[in-house]
Amino acid sequence: MSTDTKQNPIAQNTITIDGQEIPFLAGQTIMDAALAAGVYIPHLCHRQGLTPHGSCKLCVVDTGSGSASACTMPAVAGQRISNNTPALNEVRKTITQMLFIEGNHICPSCEKCGDCTLQAMAYHLGMLDGHFPQFFQRREVDASHPTIMLDRDRCILCELCVRASREVDGKNVFAIAGRGINAHLVVNSVSGKLVDSDLETSDMAAHICPVGAILIKEHGYEVPIGQRTFDLHQVSEIGLEKTIPTKVRQPDE
């Protein structure tokens, strides 16, 4: 792909990531440029096509002038970026551990197991345990909707569903409420329950959750172990996220 952008003279410039020169177009973030060039920068709260958010901090990189979130930081000509370094991956592993211990992630009993981006990220970073004392927070499950399930125990507050609902579905089904460690996902409906919201199975928001917090009912454990997304793929394969929603979405929905 770099050949056709190189022929393109408009506002063309380059940054380097781990020494590799990468072109970017005006307005692109470091993440945009990296993904377009096939360079993986770990990310959980980012999805191409949705407004960058910058909350998970998996995408932290070091620029000459300090730490930056690749998904929100504009690419600037001449930036020298460290990305795939042992030190940064250690930081990312710690951040991933934080996400695990603040929620209640019991993978063996989770329908998302094997298709979960958080779990795949943990594998990618070589995480063997949660390391920190678990918070054992009590979080509410909302099973009110006929076809969609919301299990807040596994929510990592990435706001992908919030953005997908607003920006793609043209609805406003989800929001985050509360402060600090009490932050939690809420549903925009009179009762606060999913059943009274206008969420539908065909919405992007119903499928975009990277973890097992928003699930389509009656489709758990359909794919045998060994053939699930991350049995076959690594989280670091570029473009993989595009296949996930279509993969989960069933023709009869």
Partner: peptide
Amino acid sequence: AHESCGFCTPCRVGTVL
């Protein structure tokens, strides 16, 4: 820990730890 807004992981979880 009480005043963290809870937006980003390092501060939301880290200040509590």
